[in-house]
C-alpha cells in the first residue's frame, strides 16, 4: 500500500491564510502526503506562499489566478488545475482532496466533485486510512449518530469541520524545505457572478467567532428584551466567550440572526455552553448538545434544557448571572 498525495486547499481572505489550514494539514497527514494548493491573484500570491511555508508541508502548488472579480470559477479552475497536475494521468496517485467546511469551500468542493466525477463528503469530523481506503467520520442529525463512510470509486473530495483534528497530531515540528510549484491559469469561460464589493462582518464587537469559540454563552426568550440580552453579552465579555442565541430570541429581535444556534442556525461544539433563559427546544438542542459541558439557567424547573445540562440552576437569570459574574471577578482578583 502506497502513501498517496492529499491535495489540501489553503483558503485565504484578501491574502491572509485561513487559520483552519493547520488542522487540514494535520488531517491530510493522517491519510497521506499533504500537497497544499493556494490560489490567488499576483498581488497576494507571494505573501501567501510565505505564509503556507511556515506550516509543515513539503509541497505547495501556487496558482496565480487572473485579475477579475469572479465569484468562484477562477478559484475552482485553479483548484482543478492543481488536482489535474497532481493526478497527471493516474488517478490512483491522489488519495483525497481536503477543504474547510465554510460556505465557499463547500461550493468549491461540490463543483470540483462534479467536474472531475469524484465522490463528495461534507461536514467530516474525522479522517482515517483503513486498509488503504479513506474513511470519513460524520456527525449527523444534530449529533445523534456517528457515521463512517468512504467512496467506492477514486478519491473523495472532503470538507472538514474546523478543529476536527488538532493541529499537533502527527505533524513534524518543521519540514526540511517546501517545494513550490507555480502555475497560472487563463480566465475561465464559465458563467459566473461577479463580486462588486465585500464588507466585513457585523456584530461580533471583538468577541470570538461563534463556530470556533471554546466557550459560548447562549441567550433565549427568557431574557425578555433586546436590552436585557446585554446580560448575556456582559457575561460573554467577562469570560472571553462568544454569544449565541436561540431561534426564539432571534425571532423576537433580541439579537442578530447570525448568532442563531440550532437546526436552522449554526451547529457548534464548544468546550462549554451556558444557556441563559433558553428552554431547550429540539431545534436549539441539536445545535449545541455536543458541547463538552452544558450549564443551564432557567426559571422553569421543567424546561427540557435541564435534561441535557451537566449543571442546572432553576432561577432567574437576572439574579444568577450577576452573582456568577461577581464570583468570577472575585476569583480573578484572588489569583492575580
Amino acid at each position: 500500500m502506497s502513501y498517496k498525495d492529499v491535495l489540501v486547499h489553503a483558503d485565504h481572505a484578501e491574502g491572509t491564510l485561513h487559520p483552519d489550514f493547520s488542522g487540514l494539514l494535520a488531517a491530510a497527514r493522517k491519510i497521506g502526503r499533504p500537497v497544499a494548493v493556494v490560489a490567488a491573484s499576483a498581488e497576494h500570491l507571494d505573501n501567501l506562499v510565505e505564509q503556507v511555508k511556515r506550516h509543515p508541508v513539503e509541497s505547495l502548488c501556487a496558482v496565480e489566478t487572473p485579475a477579475g472579480e469572479q465569484l468562484i470559477t477562477s478559484e475552482l479552475a485553479a483548484l482543478t488545475a492543481a488536482l489535474d497536475r497532481l493526478v497527471d494521468g493516474d488517478a490512483e496517485k491522489v488519495g483525497a482532496v481536503l477543504l474547510s467546511s465554510g460556505i465557499k469551500c463547500r461550493e468549491l468542493a461540490g463543483r470540483l466533485a462534479v467536474r472531475r466525477n469524484m465522490g463528495l463528503i461534507i461536514d467530516a469530523v474525522g479522517l482515517d486510512l483503513v486498509d488503504g481506503a479513506v474513511i470519513v467520520q460524520q456527525s449527523v442529525l444534530g449529533g445523534q449518530y456517528s457515521v463512517a463512510s468512504g467512496v467506492n470509486h477514486g478519491a473523495p473530495v472532503i470538507c472538514l469541520r474546523p478543529d476536527s483534528v488538532s493541529a499537533d497530531v502527527n505533524s513534524p515540528e518543521t519540514v526540511v524545505g517546501c517545494m513550490v510549484t507555480r502555475m497560472g491559469i487563463a480566465v475561465p469561460s464559465d458563467a459566473d457572478a461577479v463580486v462588486l464589493s465585500t464588507s466585513e462582518h457585523r456584530v461580533l464587537d471583538g468577541r470570538p467567532e461563534l463556530n470556533s469559540a471554546p466557550i459560548v454563552i447562549g441567550g433565549g426568550r427568557g431574557l425578555n428584551s433586546a436590552e436585557n440580552f446585554g446580560l448575556v453579552q456582559d457575561l460573554a465579555d467577562l469570560m472571553g466567550a462568544a454569544v449565541g442565541a436561540s431561534r426564539a430570541a432571534v425571532d423576537a429581535g433580541f439579537c442578530d440572526r447570525s448568532l442563531q444556534v440550532g437546526e436552522t442556525g449554526q451547529i457548534i461544539e464548544p468546550e462549554l455552553y451556558i444557556a441563559v433563559g433558553i428552554s431547550g427546544a429540539i431545534q436549539h438542542r441539536v445545535g449545541m448538545q455536543n458541547a463538552k459541558k452544558i450549564i443551564a439557567i432557567n426559571t422553569d424547573a421543567n424546561a427540557p434544557i435541564f435534561d441535557i445540562a451537566d449543571l442546572g440552576i432553576v432561577g432567574d437569570a437576572f439574579t444568577v448571572v450577576p452573582q456568577l459574574m461577581e464570583a468570577l471577578r472575585d476569583r480573578a482578583g484572588a489569583t492575580s
Binding site: I297, F306, A309, L311, V314, G315, V320, V321, A327, D330
Partner: peptide, 16 residues
Amino acid sequence: SGEKFVDDGLSGQRIS
C-alpha cells in the same frame, strides 16, 4: 443530565 439546584442565592458561586 447532571445536578440541578434551585437558586438559593449561592448559584453564582456554585457555577464558578
